[in-house]
Amino acid sequence: MTDVTMLWTAVYIAMLAAFTGYVVISRVPSILHTPLMSGSNFIHGIVLVGAMVALGLATTPLEQGIGFVAVILGAANVTGGYVVTERILQMFDRSGKKPKKEV
């Protein structure tokens, strides 16, 4: 793919994705703002797969070092983002009648 075609493909994708993000969040009650911020924080943890590829294709020690740190950061973004969101949303779960006591 040439650079120019790639750029236009990117613009199409960006437009549709931006619209999706906008629509998904446009009618959210304010009560869910924090979990959604946390949830979208988790979703950009997809940066992990990019970091994995960057490290996996790295050749020089410098590239490997930076890639290694990037994978650590990305992995922390993923697990931390998931657990935080899960813990916040747990409180919205009305099926288990007794909320767990925080210590």
């Binding site: 994708i13 994705a17 931006a18 993000g21 906008y22 703002h33 959604l36 979208s40 979703i43 950009h44």
Partner: peptide, 14 residues
């Protein structure tokens, strides 16, 4: 690309 843009758009609106 797609996940990033979705978060970018949703995050901006938020």
């Amino acid at each position: 690309v797609v996940a990033g843009i979705i978060v970018g758009a949703a995050g901006s609106l938020l």
